[in-house]
């Protein structure tokens, strides 16, 4: 029996659209804040991972490329990447890089640094991206944040794509920082229930 399709089953298009828009105009990078805020808001107020489970365009894109289009090798994700230590470590690293990006934005806003029209892949490789922005369109810090945020999104997408090719289509999900963070929020919200279940299991 074929599953009924919903509108949100096509959000993989959003994932492609996001990077395409940012290629032509970096200011569209701000839209990525949706992918940042929505999972958190849903986890905090809804107490679930409905975003990961239904709305994540990236997860859908990986499932499509790796599953339907058979681009994935399908090997099991290396165990180390699925451990709590690695997942939380990666989350901390990612948040530190996010904080650094915010600090760079602040430096530009405060006038200490000039705007750099480039994106940084894997936090190290600088790629010129100057065609995507005309200087002076918006305050420099707004543009700086765009370049920084787009770098973060593209870097994580590239890591996810490599994971998809080498391992399972959605191997990225095993250590996605947003996924780790939202699961942590949900577990804290269900703390009492989880403790009770644990006690019952140990009886």
């Amino acid at each position: 029996m074929k599953k009924q399709k919903h509108w949100y089953d096509y959000l993989w298009i959003w994932s492609i659209l996001y990077f395409s828009l940012g290629f032509f105009n970096i200011l569209f990078a701000w839209l990525g804040m949706l992918d940042f805020m929505l999972p958190l808001l849903i986890a905090v107020f809804g107490g679930n991972k409905w975003f990961c489970n239904h709305l994540c365009g990236r997860g859908q894109l990986f499932a499509l490329l790796g599953g339907k289009l058979k681009l994935s090798h399908g090997r099991p994700t290396p165990h180390i990447l699925t451990t709590k230590a690695f997942r939380y470590g990666f989350l901390i690293f990612f948040m530190a890089m996010f904080g650094n990006m915010l600090f760079q934005t602040y430096l530009v806003a405060a006038g200490a640094n000039g705007l750099r029209e480039a994106i940084q892949l894997l936090w190290t490789i600088r790629v010129p991206w100057d065609w995507a922005y005309s200087a002076g369109t918006v305050p420099d810090w707004v543009a700086q944040f765009s370049f920084g945020f787009y770098s973060l999104m593209l870097t994580s997408a590239l890591i996810g794509l490599v994971m998809m090719l080498l391992y399972k289509p959605r191997s990225w999900c095993a250590f996605c920082p947003m996924g780790t963070m939202t699961q942590c929020v949900c577990k804290i919200k269900q703390k009492d229930h989880l403790l009770q279940e644990q006690e019952e299991a140990s009886l």
């Binding site: 599953g67 996924g179 929020v185 949900c186 577990k187």
Partner: peptide, 21 residues
């Protein structure tokens, strides 16, 4: 990791993520 990859492929809707946990 409650990503929901399982429930997305289950033909019987027999598996689902429980409250994000």
């Amino acid at each position: 990791v409650s990503c929901g990859a399982c429930q997305a492929v289950c033909p019987k809707s027999a598996i689902a993520v429980w409250k994000g946990c």
